[in-house]
Write a protein that binds this DNA or RNA. Structure first.
Lengths: 181, 181
DNA sequence: GTCTATATACAGATAGAC
DNA sequence: GTCTATCTGTATATAGAC
């Protein structure tokens, strides 16, 4: 797993962090290079254009999502609980890539939007056998979307209105009661 | 209601449309002026800076949200059904202002984030008496957030995975069954 | 009120040295 | 692989004519 050059990964980390913390507008090539500790020229060796940098982020997102869907299908407390619980930003690599990609998508980046829709579709397919019907599936997906939306709006580390601890356990119980087969 | 100069409102409409359709980055002063059919100088007469333009949008959002909360509290089929149903982008002025403000918030605009959080808090306060407990309230709020998130990701008119027609009726019924007092 | 013209800063990208 | 220097376009904002 040390195949992708380390500097390349550092650049992607920096790009992601800028998108999450300061938004698309602030995530320029120059700012990304500075945050990654390389020069603009150095960045451009790894990613020859802004498009290439964005494509690199989407590629990382797809790989992380693939892993997540596999983990979800074997989760001990079941896919629905796993899915809702992991929809709160725990600062793990997948959450960060998802928020970063959603910033790009909302900036009009078509490939980012398509990638997010495709991942959402794969989650839905994996959850469908575990919900009573399509309405129940809609409910589960929308609660998860809602958690991500709130995460995405917390720029700069403000504590939002997202349930945590016991409140999250209660929410998961309610969702499961409302949607279980 | 003709007090705010007409050109001022047209500029705000154009700014909103650019934020929604092409994202924060595309919503420049120049592009906004062009879309509103005025020159850059003309725009700057009404809004002396980008900050002033953004503040104008937030002011409009606050006024529209105030109206919505009043309508919600007297809705014939109850506040919960009203709230969930109106969370899908019907292209009405409030929905547009909300999506536009969320673009700003995700670009790091602190006042936009604060306005959105305040509105969400007022919705929650109005709904709390109509839900069984705080967990049920969380569920309602998150389903609504999820609907907005999906709307926000549909840039350029792509049809997303949002329930409509009978599917929406079924979703509302499920949410009410899961959360009613 | 609305315009043109212009100042200043910074974006993305290229060239070529080391 | 990584750097500096530079080109070209465009962003926000100002000045001042109409």
């Amino acid at each position: 797993m040390s195949r992708p050059p380390r500097a390349r990964e550092l650049v992607l980390d920096a790009f992601e962090a800028l998108l999450i913390d300061e938004g698309e507008r602030a995530a320029t090539m120059e700012a990304t290079a500075r945050a990654a500790g390389v020069s603009k020229g150095g960045l451009l060796y790894h990613f020859g254009s802004k498009d290439a940098l964005e494509a690199g982020l989407i590629e990382r997102l797809d790989a992380l999502a693939q892993d997540d869907i596999e983990r979800m299908s074997v989760a001990p407390d079941g896919p629905v609980a796993y899915f809702v619980r992991t929809s709160v930003m725990s600062d793990d690599p997948l959450d960060r890539a998802l928020i970063a990609a959603s910033r790009l998508a909302q900036g009009g980046h078509a490939a980012a939007g398509a990638a997010l829709r495709a991942i959402r579709g794969r989650w839905a397919d994996a959850l469908r056998p575990h919900t009573a019907d399509d309405t129940a599936l809609d409910l589960v997906m929308l609660v998860s979307d809602g958690l991500y939306y709130n995460n995405a709006l917390e720029t700069g580390g403000l504590t939002g209105p997202i349930p945590t601890g016991p409140a999250m356990d209660a929410l998961i119980a309610l969702v499961e009661r409302s949607t279980k087969d």
